[in-house]
Design a protein around this nucleic acid. Structure first.
Lengths: 197, 197
DNA sequence: CCTACCGATCGGTAGG
DNA sequence: CCTACCGATCGGTAGG
């Protein structure tokens, strides 16, 4: 899923990006050093620069890779002929599954984007803002059609997105509850609270 | 609220901590430098060390100050003679108001605690784990009394806590919606999804 | 892909 | 509270 490819065409650069995502997640972007990353990849620090331009490029790739994936899914769902509540459910499930499958990348793009430098920084901020607007529009449509309770849609979006990122703590301690069970619980709590009646 | 004191007894150290919380929130703990903090406080970097032992001590203080406040509130609520659903509502409201009033400190203690060093790190992790367990116990009691839907309580706790930390984005763009309105929206979505029937 | 190395910046100390 | 300064570490480059 995501950027991870089959063993045949996985490039050295892809490996570096993947390991970087894991390292950035664990230590935070600033605290992670290129020497550590090089160690993990199995080369000297200087050798990394034959594949990438800079530490920041790694963050750029991770962040935009994730952003593009979600935007693409949003395009898809907007065009489906289903109710607003169903669109919302699909979107929420996509976020949950994405968080479980591509955890490192999603986590980094969510928490470390502030270390991007311009123009990437403002670029991503705009993309995120647009995404949340489209997300809110779906909820607003649902409210108009009385499928969803009358609440402030932008607030609902923030709550939903952050609630899903809460899976992080769960992910860290892979215990008791499995993926599907988790997904159903979240739908009950989040969508249950929004459903009208 | 919180650590902020009246003008009479606010010490130099308190000022430093307060400014540090704001700086750590904006840049992240690792990216924030003591020279920057000194600039903001209005002294030379070396002078900070007359009031504090280290950069890490600042993070320790911020994190445990917040943790102690929530634990104290939990003690209080557990002993009240009200229904589980009411306990849950009170707790959620306390978190929302805390996020609004002491935003910088709460944000830092939530997102930067991984940069603590031992024994503070494992200490805080234990405290957080215990807090979440007590939180989950309230929900479980509510489920047993059929006040709350049958869901996985630890998952519900994670969702609720992270949803509330979503206020961050709202806080950043102090727009349209006011504090009270926000609080009611969150209660509707979060508690509404949990209420039985 | 490595050796060797750079300028910058960091947290923190000595001494007054 | 300041001046002066330290050792360590950082991201990144030159040259092969």
């Amino acid at each position: 899923m995501g950027r991870i490819k089959t063993e045949h065409n996985i490039s050295r650069k892809d490996v570096i990006i993947q390991k970087a995502a894991t390292l950035f997640k664990e230590k935070g972007f600033k605290a992670a050093s290129m020497r550590e990353l090089a160690d993990i990849v199995g080369v000297e620090a200087a050798s990394l620069y034959n594949h990438i331009k800079s530490k920041n490029e790694l963050l750029n790739i991770i962040c935009f890779d994730v952003a593009n994936r979600y935007i693409h899914k949003m395009d898809e769902i907007e065009n489906e002929k289903i109710s607003s509540l169903e669109k919302l459910s699909k979107l929420v499930r996509y976020h949950i599954v994405g968080m479980i499958n591509d955890f490192d990348e999603v986590y980094v793009s969510d928490r470390e984007w502030k270390h991007l430098d311009n123009p990437y920084l403002s670029n991503l901020q705009t993309q995120r803002r647009n995404y949340r607007k489209r997300f809110a529009a779906i909820i607003e449509e649902g409210i108009k059609k009385k499928e969803i309770k009358k609440i402030d849609a932008p607030t609902a979006v923030l709550i939903i997105l952050h609630a899903i990122s809460g899976i992080e703590s769960w992910h860290r301690s892979k215990q008791k509850i499995n993926g599907k069970e988790l997904e159903e619980n979240m739908i009950t709590i989040l969508i249950g609270g929004l459903k009208n009646k």
